[in-house]
Amino acid sequence: MDGECSRGDNQESILSHQTSEPRYMTYEYLESITNVFSEERIIGRGSYGVVYKGVEDGKTIAVKKFKSLFDEKKFMKEVNYLKMLNHKNIVPYIGYCNENPKIKQMFNGELVLVEEPHMLLCMEYLPNGSLRDYIADKSSRLDWRKWYTIIEGISQGLNYLLGQDPPVTHLDLKPENILLDDNMEPKVADFGLSRLLYENNTIETVNFAGTLGYMPPERIHENKISTRFDIFSFGVIILEIIIGDRNYPAVNETPFDDFIEMQLQKWGEKKMNKQDNTSFKIDCQQIRRCIRIGLLCVQPDRKKRPEIKDIIQMLRDYLDEVSS
């Protein structure tokens, strides 16, 4: 494979000489920096594979090892997407490995040579894990200001993706795929299901994409995807951050204002004794605005969902109100 190099081709110090250009990394090298993919180096698991911590000379990266049965075309698609993306709210991509060495195995009593696929992605190591960890941990929830910053960051990453020409639709936006750096800055990750949509088309597809609970109704019932797919998923994430789970009311059944006031009361009970009254009032304004945005995003009719630029404007309008 072009760009492939061996351990002897000076890959031993690759982490100490990182450049902005993603690099090809050999399987042998990735074995060496993950302690042969040992259990103690595991930092995450998913349906497609396991993520390990790779360490060398004090430098750390995340190494995602895909299952051997994972579709190689999907893998290379994710590699190619990551190569073209560069934004502070998109997880930085460092390199990849795609090798198919032949190994000896017993088959019908005979030793035969079979290919063993090795597909790995190398990303920047983000020490604070995924957004899921913080939503799930009720005992140490972040304060509202940090949640608001995370919502803003996700919106900027999504705006970057949908602003590409053609737009990049993620199709699996969920808390597990939002990683947090050491400053709790959110970064969108995992582009294995992504698609390029030309001229904002809505297309029909038989391929299953997305995660139940974050998938819009048109995907479930009509097998349709569009740029409004990710808007729905983002709305679920916003509501899940505020509510603590995905059990939000049907938009057509519950008045916005009733639901918003109920959630504000819950936040008030949690925060009233921890903040001064002025600070809490500002938080309430932000929470109210974010709940409204979330409910607009999860409307069943995709044409009624706001575009990402409108969401960013709604968040910006709030900041203008506070500063004025």
Rank of each mutant, 00 (worst) to 15 (best):
L121T: 14
M123K: 00
E124G: 11
E124N: 07
E124L: 06
P127F: 03
N128K: 00
N128S: 07
R132F: 07
R132Y: 08
R132T: 12
R132S: 15
I135A: 12
S139D: 15
S139I: 07
D143L: 08
R145C: 14
R145W: 04
W147Q: 11
I150A: 14
G153F: 07
G157K: 02
G157F: 05
Y160K: 04
L162C: 05
L162W: 02
Q164K: 04
D165G: 07
P166D: 04
P166R: 00
P167I: 01
T169I: 06
H170D: 12
L171G: 03
L173Y: 00
K174I: 05
P175S: 14
N177F: 03
D181F: 04
N183T: 15
P186W: 13
K187V: 14
K187M: 15
K187F: 12
V188F: 05
V188A: 12
A189H: 06
F191T: 07
L196Y: 01
L197R: 00
L197D: 05
Y198K: 03
N200Y: 06
N201D: 13
I203K: 01
E204H: 06
F208C: 08
G210E: 08
L212I: 12
L212G: 09
G213A: 08
M215I: 13
P216W: 01
R219P: 02
I220N: 00
I220C: 04
I220T: 09
I220Y: 02
H221K: 03
N223P: 01
K224G: 09
K224V: 02
I225A: 06
F232N: 12
F232A: 13
G235P: 02
V236C: 10
V236K: 02
E240N: 08
I241H: 04
I242N: 12
I243T: 09
I243F: 06
D245G: 13
D245T: 08
R246E: 09
N247L: 15
Y248W: 06
Y248G: 12
P249L: 13
A250C: 14
V251L: 04
V251S: 12
N252S: 15
N252G: 15
